[in-house]
Amino acid sequence: MIRSDQEDALARGLRELAGDVPDPGNLAGKAAELGRRKLRVRRTSYLVAAAGTAAAATLAVSSLASTGGPNLLPGAGSSSTASSIGDLTEAITVDCLDASGKNLGVNVGQPDSQMGSKETPGQQATRWAAATEFTSRNPEATAVIQPRGPATLVIFKEPDGIVRGVLQFDQVDGAWVLSLLRYC
């Protein structure tokens, strides 16, 4: 059994150790800026959720199966849209800041294959996430499915509400087609 004087020595030692840590300088300004950005993302996500229909379903991405999926066309810009109803993903801010605040960049574009499928958008998004290793990069993200008129958005969110990816599916001849993507 550890005696209390050893515990006292440990507490004293930890305080001394902490006392040797240099002053970090001004972190407050940067933290506030990062916080403002998080707040904007959260508000945008909230507005998007409010605008969607009530038929939103959540499913855990990490528990779903992995098969093949479409790849993103490299270099496709946000202005290039394969969707006949326009780019609905544009209204949603995808935040690719890592834990250190470094921006890893958002991939924006359209898939190189636009085959329709009888699978639901949720099922297709899950296959896409697994096939592109999005799931392993964002293991805590869950998919929120939001019907938006003739299209459906699948929004991948972290538990704290930060959006890591948005997929837009359009309905064509009774099949769901993945038309646009934005993701980390």
Partner: peptide, 20 residues
């Protein structure tokens, strides 16, 4: 790790800003 401690502090403060 001092540098990591600074990074984690910044992220902590940013999250606090949101919930402030």
């Amino acid at each position: 790790d001092y540098d990591l401690a600074k990074d984690v502090t910044q992220e902590t403060l940013a999250r606090m800003y949101v919930a402030w």
